[in-house]
Amino acid sequence: MVIQCKDLLKIYFSGEELHALDGVSLSIQKGEFVSVMGPSGCGKSTLLNILGLLDQPTGGEYFLNGTPTARIKDSVRSRLRRQNIGFIFQSFNLMPRLSVLENIALPMRYSGIERKLILPRARELAQQVGLEKKIYNTPQQLSGGQCQRVACARALANRPSLILADEPTGNLDSKSSQDILNLLQQLNQKGLTIIMVTHDPKIAAGTQRTIHMKDGKIV
């Protein structure tokens, strides 16, 4: 089991208590491709951030590959994130001043991989997402679909076991959206576990399982 959550609680205190997650329990097996759907503000992204160790739950338990994560140090969270998780964001979150190649290489710069191995691996990933001819371009010189493919390649850089995608097709046209979905499906077929937040039922239909959320709860 890659992910196991029990009674996850996330409360924001801004004048009044806001329960972004209200007792979410969830298990995701290795190699699953799961989509999370629900209306805006239902807690999808909060759940994804907690699963990605970017945020901490107010209560509950979360095990990532069997490791409890609720009360671990920031440095351990960073290491777990680096070794196990690849992120794909709706707005790509690429470094605007870095080239495609350097963007893909960036996670490897933090993982302690030998320097001389980093760029060949980044090239290989660029080829895998079909951007081998754009490696020296900056994100501003790419289309939205191409940017998201760079983000996919970057997410794969450290060979993670889990990909977390937060509305990866939200900013893309339908063709590009389909391309990204196809790419994610291919990765899933190679054994990667993928959790994807989406608003689009057509995209969700391309996953193996869909989790529906409402008011911070799985329904």
Binding site: D74, Q83, N93, M95, P107, Y110
Partner: peptide, 16 residues
């Protein structure tokens, strides 16, 4: 700030 967030998401530690 956003860049710091992206780097942290990609595995950068506080020391990095």
């Amino acid at each position: 700030t956003k860049e710091i967030g992206i780097r942290r998401a990609l595995g950068a530690t506080q020391w990095d």
